[in-house]
Design a protein around this nucleic acid. Structure first.
Lengths: 212, 212
DNA sequence: AAAACTATCGTTAGAAG
DNA sequence: ACTTCTAACGATAGTTT
């Protein structure tokens, strides 16, 4: 009880690192969900893809993503590095990858997985199924419509990657550079909306760039 | 002027996709900076690493990150895929087949499939799923027989990637899988705090971005 | 920090320039 | 959709349970 009032209510705080370890942790616990909520609202209201990744000081990872964090993070990566971009270099199906081959690969590896991995894989498969289903529907609709609406909004903007790290340490806030904006922010064009699932991007382990 | 008041002030809005293209865009323009600000505050106040990536409907990419977006996105990726992790017969760092690779193959090919192929794939996926389920059961039984506690609670958990795109379109909200929480959120342990920049797939531009 | 509680601060829908 | 204004809404620091 503070002179008649039950609490002082919200007070203004300085925007700098909170000193007390405990207080800092409490603040993180309170603010993180709100950040995620904001992100969620943004994606819901505006139909945007939004991904938020946080690592607490203790190293715990929390993330939010709509429609899914990982692809957005990947897109972002591709956007800023374009490391595996091999468009036009005859990678069109030349790998001879058939569905059967993929299934065999999956098949061959399932035996080596642990319980948790299996469960995660199972969930993923559910998702893949949903997407395949959805894609089926799309293809069907397209076929019936017999017409193709042009979904390409803006022109492609090729940007050079400019990743300058200092072993991860940076002097103050470091900001990514695409068409770089003022502070910690950058702006660009979604690669995936242009590539349309051609096997680009990172993770081309069969092109030998990481698998070495 | 609205009966004595100059404006109606802020009104409550429904949390669903804004219909008008223009209004939606305006909302995005207003809310995105606020989201970034919140993210900035969280990192400043709590010393957390925070990355936010957004792709507007038009495919434009906006991001915020402290200390830097890309390494955080990479860490997140590693966290959720561990793409250096070779499953299957212990081929050490060779052309190792990773789960991610498999998923990406699936990914890359789904977009190119026709309707019939999609349907076949879907059925195949059902089969694989059953297989995975069955295998799950086996592993669990084995574990129980051996009186080992099967689940690792807070420890590192290997998660599968789940990036399935159809030209950037996705069906519904998709969530990442780690110690997966209810909605669009996940939680885990920072790989880098455990691995200290050991093998890490991508992103080791300068031999480990955080611990250095 | 777990929940609940407010007084207050910061955000933002809507209108107007 | 740019910038500014305003009132109302939502987030949250600080406290109590």
């Amino acid at each position: 009880m503070v002179n008649g009032r039950s609490t002082k209510g919200r007070q203004r705080i300085e925007m700098k690192s909170i000193k007390g370890e405990e207080a800092r942790q409490v603040c993180f616990s309170k603010r993180r969900p709100c950040l995620f909520k904001k992100a969620c609202e943004l994606s819901t209201l505006c139909g945007a893809e939004v991904a938020v990744c946080t690592f607490s000081r203790g190293g715990r990872c929390f993330s939010f993503g709509h429609p899914s964090t990982l692809p957005i993070a990947d897109s972002f990566h591709d956007e800023h590095t374009l490391d595996g971009l091999t468009i036009g270099s005859g990678s069109h199906g030349s790998q001879g990858l058939t569905v059967e081959a993929v299934m065999q690969l999956l098949n061959a590896n399932v035996g080596a997985l642990g319980l948790q991995e299996l469960e995660v894989l199972r969930k993923d498969l559910y998702m893949v199924q949903d997407m395949v289903k959805e894609r089926s529907r799309e293809v069907l609709e397209d076929a019936m419509r017999a017409r193709r609406p042009p979904p390409q909004p803006r022109m492609h903007m090729v940007a050079m990657p400019s990743q300058i790290f200092f072993g991860g340490q940076s002097a103050g806030t470091m900001y990514t550079t695409f068409p770089s904006l003022s502070n910690g922010q950058s702006e660009g064009v979604h690669v995936n909306s242009l590539l349309h699932g051609s096997l680009g991007g990172r993770g081309n382990y069969f092109n030998g760039q990481f698998g070495g």
